[in-house]
């Protein structure tokens, strides 16, 4: 039991919280950065290799497109269906092999990244799927290469939805990061675990909750603002729906059932 009346209590609390916050931000930032770099292309490839899409035949091979699509879909589903705590423990040998140790804040980034990538691939998938197929057709009709199509059509259109999804992904990384205390990872979750649970300091818990809340708010606000800016279309009151809002709705529905195994890549297209 910690005594809040002790003169060292508040300075120590600040010290612990500061360190915890830094570790959480550090783990989340690195995990998100890796997730973004890996997940963005994977999400684009996952949708692109569907039948009738721009990557249905990579290197001129339809069979390759089908294999890549099937494999990616399978991995994403697999990754999303394993509970984080199980994944974290299962990854201990991998992390040890990769980083030499599985204890601590750094190694905790490995399971955090691996749980976030499938989630983020799904985010990108939804965002890309919302891009009007007519735009791809127009780009094709102009004789644009696939790379140009991705850069100048797909990304500009999908970016607002991807940013909103990034906010959601970061939030869930922060969520999961609270659990890495189990494998010796630091962060605010660990603060709550060691001070709040093991030493009965409710003051620590309250502060941890406030800081986490502020972090999530800040990220959501910043990315929403950015998404609005990039997708700003003031006079857009047509039959076409707002892709950004729509993607968010999909995502919210998806989050309501975190362990659902709905297929993420309905195949087949109508002629």
């Amino acid at each position: 039991m910690i005594d809040p009346a002790a003169p060292t209590f508040w300075p120590q609390l600040m010290q612990v919280l500061l360190e915890g916050t830094w570790e959480t931000v550090y783990m989340t930032a690195i995990a998100m950065a890796i997730t973004f770099v890996v997940g963005l292309p994977l999400g684009i490839i996952l949708v692109g290799t569907e039948q009738g899409r721009f990557l249905e035949a990579p290197f001129g091979s339809r069979a390759l497109g089908r294999v890549v699509n099937g494999l990616l879909g399978f991995i994403v589903n697999l990754g999303r269906s394993v509970p984080f705590i199980v994944l974290m423990i299962a990854l201990i040998p991998v992390t040890r092999w990769l980083l030499g140790s599985f204890i601590g804040t750094g190694p905790a980034i490995v399971p955090l990244t691996l749980v976030a990538i499938p989630f983020f691939v799904r985010v990108v998938e939804i965002a890309v799927r919302e891009v009007d197929p007519g735009l791809f057709e127009a780009a094709e009709s102009l004789g644009a290469s696939r790379w140009l199509l991705v850069r100048r059509v797909l990304l500009p259109q999908a970016t607002p939805a991807i940013l909103l999804g990034t906010a959601t992904t970061i939030t869930s990384i922060i969520n999961f990061s609270a659990m890495v205390g189990v494998v010796g990872g630091g962060g605010l979750g660990n603060v709550a675990l060691t001070y709040g649970m093991q030493r009965y300091s409710w003051i620590h818990i309250v502060f941890v909750v406030i800081i986490l809340f502020a972090l999530v708010q800040l990220i959501q606000w910043a990315l929403t603002a950015l998404a609005k800016r990039l997708g700003a279309q003031p006079i857009r009151r047509g039959p076409k729906k707002d892709a950004t809002a729509d993607a968010q709705a999909h995502l919210d529905a998806d989050l309501a059932l975190p362990s659902s195994r709905t297929p993420t890549h309905p195949s087949g297209s109508t002629p």
């Binding site: 009007d132 007519g134 735009l135 057709e137 127009a138 094709e140 009709s141 102009l142 004789g143 100048r152 059509v153 500009p156 259109q157 970016t159 607002p160 990039l230 997708g231 279309q233 857009r236 076409k240």
Partner: peptide, 16 residues
């Protein structure tokens, strides 16, 4: 395709 332009019913312009 650079020698064949095409226009569409729903314009298909990149909105962003």
């Amino acid at each position: 395709r650079h020698q064949i332009g095409m226009v569409f019913q729903h314009f298909n312009l990149v909105g962003n």
